[in-house]
């Protein structure tokens, strides 16, 4: 434990702002990925292990498309991942809706093996690094006297906009109402004449899009390599558990919580860095097993 370093950091604007932005970009990227995972789980009851691989594909696609134009790359890569998600759902996953949960895990784990190797075939075995897009190669924005890179601001803005958009989609639209109803009671929704298969596919596509978008946004600031989906997958699971299974609002809180724990916790407890988020998860599970908001699904 290094509380001295922590106190020193908190008393300096520079350190607070840099840890704060780091917490926000970690948290918001994590939110994009985890909200997709949570939606897919909440509505379809599928724990998708391959969700991290979709994030990885988003990063790689944006890396390849960047030579066109940054805006095009961002949108096209996220949509491309959504299309891949649609294919996975229609060709494979829909056959295991009724299979035991563990067989769904085995199937989606097999996707990880395949997709990681596909990434190796297309983009090579090594790390690739993309660098900040040209559009963001400009002087940092100053908050107080602390600089924040322009691209970090972009991630934060996009993350918040998507979070608000997702919230509006789920609460204000017909599709959102159906999604929430299907999460609650799919049989009843089907009995009311809604095409549940189409809703499932739609949710899976939405979830894949969000994972892909997370990868696209992360691509310039993280190293891209086959298997990069692994660690974010585990963290997304933690977010989903901390936030409550199936709850998007919970995922938002959980993801930001993890962002803050990682950014500030690594200053205060450098020796425990890798274990902090898991300690947080254990604490939440033991005290509030339905998530911090207490809105998680019963299983």
């Amino acid at each position: 434990m290094d509380l001295g370093a922590f106190a020193q950091c908190v008393s300096s604007t520079l350190c607070v702002v840099s840890q704060l932005t780091s917490a926000l970009i970690t948290g918001l990227i994590l939110f994009l990925v985890a909200s997709g995972l949570s939606l897919v789980f909440g509505v379809m009851g599928i724990l998708n292990f391959a969700h991290g691989s979709l994030y990885m594909l988003g990063a790689y696609l944006s890396f390849s498309l960047l030579r066109l134009n940054f805006g095009v790359a961002t949108v096209a890569a996220a949509l491309g991942v959504a299309v891949i998600g649609l294919l996975l759902e229609r060709v494979f996953i829909r056959h295991v809706y009724r299979a035991p949960l563990l067989y769904q895990l085995l199937l989606t784990y097999a996707f990880i093996l395949v997709l990681d190797d596909v990434a190796k075939l297309i983009w090579g075995y090594d790390f690739v690094s993309m660098g900040v897009p040209d559009a963001f190669r400009r002087p940092p924005i100053f908050i107080g006297r602390a600089p924040v890179p322009a691209y970090y601001m972009f991630i934060i803005v996009v993350g918040v906009v998507v979070a608000v958009g997702l919230w509006l989609l789920l609460t204000r639209t017909r599709f959102g109402r159906i999604i929430r109803a299907a999460a609650d009671n799919p049989t009843m929704v089907a009995a009311l004449g809604v095409n549940v298969a189409a809703v499932s596919a739609g949710v899976f596509v939405l979830g894949s899009f969000l994972a892909g978008l997370g990868g696209v946004l992360a691509a310039p600031v993280r190293s891209i390599f086959p298997g990069m989906g692994f660690s974010i997958l585990v963290e997304s699971f933690i977010v989903v558990v901390i936030g409550g299974l199936g709850s998007v609002a919970g995922a938002f809180v959980g993801a930001l919580l993890i962002g803050f724990v990682r950014a500030f916790g690594s200053v205060a407890f450098p020796a425990l860095e890798e274990g902090l988020v898991f300690m947080l998860m254990a604490a939440v599970l033991l005290t509030r097993p339905r998530g911090v908001l207490g809105v998680g699904k019963e299983l």
Partner: peptide
């Protein structure tokens, strides 16, 4: 002792959390 209080996926995630804490101890 702690994990068996929970069921289903919550049990699974708690076992994962403890195992990763053990992992942290091992590498530290």
């Amino acid at each position: 002792f702690f994990c068996v209080r929970l069921g289903t996926i919550y049990f699974s995630m708690l076992t994962l959390a403890f195992a990763q804490i053990v992992y942290t101890v091992v590498i530290r």
